[in-house]
Design a protein around this nucleic acid. Structure first.
Length: 289
DNA sequence: ACCCAGGGTGACG
DNA sequence: CGTCACCATGGG
């Protein structure tokens, strides 16, 4: 399903279905990858790395030998995206999404980082989410200087929970400041986010909704982007419009009808969702002027 | 000035 | 169960 080349501290992963770094970074699943020169800089599994498109694959630098497995998992290289893209191509309603979304991979991000990031995402826009996440990292993220890069990790739960509400507001969190502080507190107090990886979707979703600032949509983002629930289907304003336009021909569908159609998309519906989301946002699908 | 952004909460019916 | 005002903040 994929090939690996490892030399000079550089890991290159070549999947059999072409990978797109730019699309994967721009599609709104992660907020800490910044375009830089010929690639993107980001912090992956706690380590600052530079990512470059390598043909139909991805190169990561630096990478120690023991980090290979974690990177393969993070970039979801073991999944058959060929099957998912074939499913989209075979769907007359969704095939138009492929030209601009083909090559997207769902990153397997850190659950706590994903939780906090998507609490911030509520009634917010991607650019400002990125800015606020960066501010949080600069404020309390662990500073790391290895032999290649200097960077800050995403804040530990304890560090984030120690910020006061007014400090979080000053960093750009707005009215979500108390949500972030309390949710960080819950994780710092020992809440096991990893345990949600093994729960059925409905139970994991319900559990996540116990965090302040987390409703069904944010829960689905955390489950899809960090806890391996590929059938979690985040319904934000863009997806509501896209579903209305692409699946229901422009008329407002009821909740039951939507659930039925999502169910038919199968166990990778959440990944399909990400392709559609990216397409809708890139093309302004469903925006009524 | 108004509306929108990867929505959630609390009040009310 | 459903609806709805409100919530910071910056950009169009």
């Amino acid at each position: 399903m994929y090939q690996i080349i490892y030399e000079n501290q550089t890991l290159t992963m070549l999947p059999s279905t072409p990978f797109s770094l730019a699309r994967s970074c721009a599609c709104g699943q992660a907020f800490r990858f910044r375009s830089e020169g010929e690639g993107f800089f980001g912090v992956v599994n706690g380590r600052g790395v530079f990512l470059k498109q390598a043909g139909a694959g991805l190169s990561v630098y630096p990478c120690a030998r023991h980090e290979i497995e974690g990177l393969v998992r993070y970039f979801d290289m073991e999944r058959d995206y060929g099957a998912i893209e074939s499913q989209i191509m075979a769907d007359e309603r969704l095939k138009a999404c492929l030209p601009c979304a083909s090559g997207i991979r769902i990153f397997q991000q850190d659950p706590f980082e994903t939780l906090i990031s998507f609490i911030l995402s509520a009634n917010n826009n991607v650019k400002r989410i990125q800015k606020t996440v960066a501010a949080l990292c600069d404020a309390t993220g662990e500073a790391v200087t290895d032999d290649v890069y200097s960077y800050r990790r995403f804040p530990a739960p304890k560090a984030l929970s120690l910020l006061r509400e007014d400090e979080l507001r000053a960093l750009g969190a707005g009215y979500r400041a108390p949500f972030i502080r309390k949710s960080a507190q819950m994780v710092a107090d020992g809440y096991d986010l990893e345990a949600l990886r093994r729960l059925p979707l409905a139970l994991a979703r319900k559990a996540l909704c116990a965090f302040p600032g987390v409703g069904e949509k944010v829960a689905d983002c955390v489950l899809l982007f960090s806890l391996s629930h590929t059938d979690a289907f985040p319904m934000d304003v863009w997806m509501k419009r896209a579903v209305r336009e692409l699946i229901f021909g422009g008329t407002e569908p009821g909740k039951a009808r939507i659930a039925s159609e999502i169910g038919k998309l199968g166990p990778a519906s959440g990944i399909v969702q990400q392709y559609v989301f990216h397409y809708a946002r890139e093309n302004g699908i469903g925006v009524r002027t």
